[in-house]
Amino acid sequence: MCLAIPGLIESIYVQDNINMAKVNFGGVKRATCLAYVPHAKAGDYVLVHVGFALSVINEQEAQSTLQVLKDIGELDEI
């Protein structure tokens, strides 16, 4: 129920005075409300739950999480 998945903002438009976007989820496109991520722009990945973007995915943090995981693997090989 609290499922939220990352999608790519393709384009932004305004509807009833709120910012909306067309967001691409691996090919499936959905209208998504951007009211809670006012700084999001086309090309950003956002975490979307029931048609609302809750956060812009932090690319740097995403990379560093993966790096930590990979380092754990290398530690084991020593």
Partner: peptide, 18 residues
């Protein structure tokens, strides 16, 4: 915070205020 790619300490202030 393991989920730093999506979670900040303050959370989403705009969402909290609505």
């Amino acid at each position: 915070n393991q989920y730093a790619r999506a979670v900040e300490k303050e959370g989403n202030i705009a969402a909290q205020s609505i």
